[in-house]
Nucleic acid binder design. Structure first.
Lengths: 201, 201
DNA sequence: ACAGGAGGTTACCAGCGGTAACACCATGAC
DNA sequence: GTCATGGTGTTACCGCTGGTAACCTCCTGT
């Protein structure tokens, strides 16, 4: 049976397998097992392991796909016309839009990220960190203030990313709330309305 | 062998089992299995299941303990003397202090929370939400502004909690950074220094 | 003396991630 | 032509996990 898997390079095969894995994740969420994924791809477990080493490897490859894709969207949003507020708004909106489009995939990535070891977690949540990084960088470029410190950049990046991510998680369980509302409230929170009238000193 | 488990009420027994589970989590982190926990308690699996139903039940009971404890600390911090900034600072510091004391437990709770179903996740991360809630309530009481809307309260609560939590997660992997620094940067982020000079309109 | 019900055990189940061993072609070398 | 080689694929297994059924045992109330 030289069905679908006919004349293909290993890279193409890898792509096919990843697409199958994606389909399973989208369908079965976190119940996606190596057996299920292999079945969906029309093969059996061992060749999956030959391609990706272990479950973590498959997960990393899968995560990389989505992360690259999402990062591209975030970057595009980050260079929107307008002031910092408008750009931040577009970026947050882009993130939540991605969550809205593939909630299963998003959840899967986040769940698994929490369970992986430090390096992988850093890599996956690094998306989210880079997201915050770029936001912080944009901020820094905007306000011609002194360059922010290393620790401040790190904490802010993770903090902002975590803020948006947590709001996204909550939103997944409350799909009745319009995306726009979530974005609006987050922007309001970020841009000073929280401590309004309360000097940080 | 009427060893330790002698004259005890079911509630006391439950407590003993939870303490054993706690010990295992603290020692073995997320590798804590029902078998390991049972062994640590000096018994076997089935009685663990009789007490807690399933792994999720044990997790929920375990989480409830720590959540109650942590919430008490957060509440205590939230009523510190001083302005809103000081109180917020104390609260964030209390949260990070708890993370610092029992990083293994904290990680375990967060990992598992991500994997549980909607209700449980809401319950566990509800800690974190209530944390944000109280912060938002404190804020609202402080500034005599109009009551904030329901959606704003929700998004802000989750957003703020997620911000602190993400910063805490990052901090777990960078223990060289002093807690005070993390707290300072978070407070700075929350109290307007992010969008400084950029009106939200 | 006997029923009953905690509290506990052994022994099992399906499913998981992961691996070893073997089969099936292709291709290229001699 | 034949033979080794290497990629693609299989079946069959391992240890372990969460979870359960069946039994056993001993203490208690009547």
């Amino acid at each position: 049976m030289e069905s679908v898997a006919a004349a293909t390079t290993p890279e193409q095969r890898r792509e096919q397998l990843l697409e199958a894995a994606d389909r399973v994740v989208q369908r079965d969420g976190s119940a996606a097992s190596m057996n299920l994924i292999a079945a969906e791809a029309g093969i059996t477990k061992p060749i999956l392991y030959r391609h990706f080493g272990d479950k973590g490897g498959l997960y990393r490859a899968l995560a990389a796909r989505h992360i690259d894709q999402l990062l591209a969207r975030l970057r595009a949003a980050l260079v929107t016309r307008g002031g910092l507020t408008a750009r931040t708004r577009a970026t947050v909106d882009a993130y939540l839009a991605a969550v809205e489009e593939q909630p299963q995939v998003y959840r899967f990535l986040m769940e698994r990220a929490a369970a992986e070891d430090v390096d992988v977690r850093g890599q996956v949540l690094g998306l989210v960190r880079r997201f915050g990084d770029e936001l912080a960088a944009g901020l820094q470029a905007e306000s011609a203030l002194a360059p922010i410190s290393e620790s401040r950049a790190q904490v802010w990046a993770h903090g902002i990313a975590g803020m948006v991510q947590a709001a996204g998680d909550w939103w997944l369980d409350h799909p009745d709330v319009p995306r726009e509302v979530v974005v609006d409230e987050l922007i309001a929170l970020m841009f000073g309305e929280f401590g309004l009238g309360t000097p940080p000193a």
